[in-house]
Structures are given as structure tokens and as C-alpha cells.
């Protein structure tokens, strides 16, 4: 599509969507949000860019094959699950090595651990898989339009 308004707006919107998606991913453990919603948010940004520029351009700027991204995401989630059992708990059990609860003072440290890894995996899986679907569909429709001309 060749629209100056859309192109200019996308230049502004894409970073907002991506930052918002990461914020939503980050707050997801205790508040509404999480990897799935965050991933979808990021997809909106990428899809908007793909419409404003082109599919090829979006693929180029994404740098990685979206399916590989989804694969890496799935791997992150599995590792996040295995981490729990490697640390002596059950599969998928939450582990926070830099985080502890001190009675009387509340929580201390960084809430980074297996749960965040799992959620990041979900984020990447959704981003990769949905982008792959959108790109494949757009390309098929585009090829059809070209073919009918």
C-alpha cells in the first residue's frame, strides 16, 4: 500500500506498540497482561509495518524467519519448565533465584526467573507464529492479485 499518512503514522506507532508489548509482558505475572497479549501487541506493530511498507520490507526488518522465532520461543518455554524441575521442584514450577521474601520487610531483589523465561517464550512464539501466518496469507493474496492482472 502506498499511503504517506499510514507510513508516517507507522513510523511513530511501531515503537509504541513494541514498547507497550514488552511492558505488558513484564507486568504480566501479577497483573493483567502476559506473554500472549504482549506478543499479539507486537504482532499488531509488525503487521502495521508490513501493510505500510511491504511484506518483504517487514521480513527484512524482522531479520529472523518468523517460524524460527516461534521455535526459539517454544524452546524458551520448555526450558522455563525444565528449570523448575532442575531446581528440585516439579516441571513448570516457578523459580526466582534473585528474589526472596523477607518477613516483615516484604519482597526483595529482582523477580526474574523461570516464569519470566516461560512468558518470554510465549511472547516469542505468538509473535513468530502469527507473523508467519500473516506474511504467508498476505503473500498468497498478493500473488493472486498479480496473477489475475
Amino acid at each position: 500500500m502506498n499511503s504517506t499518512i499510514l507510513k508516517t503514522a507507522t513510523r511513530l506507532l511501531l515503537p509504541i506498540f513494541l514498547i507497550a508489548s514488552i511492558l505488558i509482558l513484564w507486568r504480566g505475572h501479577n497483573q493483567p497482561g502476559g506473554g500472549f497479549i504482549g506478543g499479539l501487541m507486537a504482532v499488531i506493530g509488525v503487521a502495521l509495518y508490513a501493510i505500510a511498507a511491504s511484506i518483504d520490507e517487514a521480513r527484512r526488518r524482522l531479520r529472523v524467519d518468523p517460524l524460527v522465532l516461534a521455535g526459539v520461543g517454544l524452546a524458551c518455554s520448555v526450558l522455563g519448565g525444565l528449570w523448575g524441575s532442575a531446581a528440585g521442584g516439579a516441571f513448570l514450577q516457578g523459580v526466582w533465584p534473585f528474589y526472596e521474601y523477607v518477613s516483615g520487610e516484604g519482597t526483595k531483589g529482582w523477580p526474574i526467573g523461570s516464569v519470566l523465561l516461560f512468558d518470554t517464550g510465549v511472547y516469542l512464539t505468538v509473535l513468530g507464529a502469527v507473523c508467519a501466518i500473516i506474511f504467508a496469507l498476505e503473500e498468497a493474496v498478493f500473488a493472486e492479485r498479480e496473477g489475475s492482472r
Binding site: 507464529a129 502469527v130 501466518i133 504467508a136 496469507l137 498468497a140 493474496v141 493472486e144
Partner: peptide, 16 residues
Amino acid sequence: FGLLAFALALAFRAWQ
């Protein structure tokens, strides 16, 4: 959502 996205894509390919 995933299944439906697939089904729509499939319907398009089948029509093609």
C-alpha cells in the same frame, strides 16, 4: 483463533 486462521488460509488455498 489459531484453528480459524488456519481454516481461512486453507479455504483460500483450496479456492485457488
